[in-house]
Design a protein around this nucleic acid. Sequence first.
DNA 1: GGGAGAATTCCG
DNA 2: GGAATTCTCCCA
Length: 766
Amino acid sequence: MSKQQSLFDDAPAEWELDAQSQRLVATVVLGEGATGEYDYLVPEALSDRERGEYFLEVGRRVRVPFGRSNRKVVGYCVALETKLVDAARLKSVAEVIDAHALLSPAMLRLTRWMADYYLCKWGEVLEAVVPAGVRLLAGTRKVTLLAVPEDVRETMGQLKLGSPQQRKALDYLAGCGRTLTTAQLADAVGCTAGPIKQLLKKGLIESHEKRVRSGEFDEITAERESPLVLNEDQQRAFDAINAALESGEARGMVLFGVTGSGKTEVYLQAIERVVGYGRQAIVLVPEISLTPQTVRRFRARFDGVAVLHSHQSHVERHREWQRIARGEVQVVVGARSAVFAPTPNLGLIVVDEEHESSFKQDSSPRYHARDVAWQRAQAEEIPLVLGSATPSLESWYKTEQSEFARLDLPSRVSNRPLPDVVTVDLRDSAHTKFSRGAISRPLHQAMVAALRDQGQVILLLNRRGFSTHVQCPACGYVAECPACEMSLTFHRQESILRCHYCDYHEPPPVNCPDCKSPAIRYGGMGTQKLEAEVLARFPEHTCERMDTDSMRKAGSHQQVLDRFSKGEIDILLGTQMIAKGLDFPNVTLVGVINADTALHLPDFRAGERTFQLVAQVAGRTGRGEKGGRVLVQTLSPEHMAIRAAVRHDFEMFAEEDLTTRRQLGYPPFGSMIRILVRGPAEETARAVAEGLAERLKREVTGEEGIRIMGPAAAAIPKLRDHYRFQIQLQAPTLDPLRSAVQRATTRWKVPDGVFLAVDVDPWDMM
DNA sequence: GGGAGAATTCCG
DNA sequence: GGAATTCTCCCA
């Protein structure tokens, strides 16, 4: 973010001082276009709150003339101050757009911090923080209301009017005791708009504009539930959060609790306290967990619950935002962007499943909601609770450094044991000989036993489609996406080859396009093929598949889960969407078809993700009387992430992985910025990436401990016809990296058709 | 010197 | 981000 430039480089000269005067000046940041802050004069009519709703205050949007052509642009008023300025050199604010501030001064500071931290424009952050529905004032319309001015009212009787209808209209309006629209007045008097226009023209009636809501909405209510009794561990965690609430300080806490340990009840009771103080709480949950049941759980305990997520209409979101801003809401439940909810008196932020990737936004501003939440908590001096069974190593390390407190919920509620987890070594020929399918002999036998005892089974396979590659055994040809050069997946239901990175698809070949051989082979296991295998092995049992392909229709997700919970489905198989948050007591077996899918990706978090996935899917079983088992099929049973997951030992995993990360300087022991350069022309993109790397290296010469790697082709080297190159920067602290990137990219124009994406604290390394 | 097109500057 | 201004190159 560039510093505010002064109009004068030096102190003003004697003659210039004459032009200075004390004026009310608004500092404006543009929503898009030019970066920087621009000062405008505030006209009398907009500075006076006595003269209507549309006066200027910090946090509202304005329309201002900008540039040499004075085109009107939208900006955010970030400061308002009476100061000595040369009025002749400033333009004036043209219009105030909002009737209420969209951002409090504290939120403005938070967005400013984001722009600095994530190396993007302040205006861009502001546009991302205020939902589009709010910016567009969705669900409201402008009406023009008429009234008789006070001075006219006094002399009305003696006035000579142009027509009897004007008289009637004026008398009616003066007598009705409220303001009316033109249509209402015309209707009441039985005239057209003509006489009313005449009165307006003569100044006998005045008009002002107002925004009104265009429709009313029903309040959703849920059946009330009372708080549960906390067990000893929950009580201890609750007490700690409570102490933090009473301290009036910003305190970060990691609520480390295995799946099923009752984290939510702790949140709920802590929020009750917050509400008791007359304050609000924000609960962030991953996008996929934001289901009707999750929301119902909060509605059953609190009166005002607002929900914010990306699938809402503009009107809904605008309505929720306004309710929150008016202080009518006690609890805001939402995905990532709910961290910006305009609560007037925030008391607590909870981030549930804080390790989830959906808290990181993958377009600019590439913020992480957990980190923004901590920033907001510090600014508002309130506690932040991060809940997870498998905390991110970033948060975990903060507890080790005592920056965050650690609150443990080591046991499941009603002391159910964690399920037994065993690995099945897929390298063992005894297993593989049994069948060429995905299900090994031990897994098959475990399924038979579980189903025989009336239990339900969950199978996890993180690959959609039928077969993951289509190959000609004669010449080696592999069907690839022309836009991404990644192998195409065969989807049997639609009978189509599909690219999983873009929307490309084509019909499957009958003969090999290269050598005309008819013997095309469909290799690799996807959920559709697994489904076929399960149906073949267990014809007498019901099986349902759950992945993004089978769950296209809205509500189908919920439908399948309902049927599964009623026991109408014996075997549920699917991608990681079945690994999260489901709670079905009758699930006695979980099978992980291939635990290694994420393990060998070129990503320093590969181990962390594998551990999380196995630990989470393991948590889906053993929630009922019958207990549960987990079978993890893997080619790397000795890998530390898998060994630790089998033992339910997060601490062992964390200790080992942190040791490796410390040696290599990876987060949390160092900071990282990833820059992706992409474009349709491979050589141009490469050249730009090389040029940028050169500039970066020049910027950091002589600085200690900074590593610049690349440019290198990204892990997905081509995507949607764009060639991708990445540069990775690492250093013990972030500041030198940020300033190097800033110096290397400001006033550096990338050629048309080449795009830069700067990602601070990247999560996605592909 | 002047015109066209590219590069750069600046916007309050 | 876009328009105005400045720079640069070529030709006469």
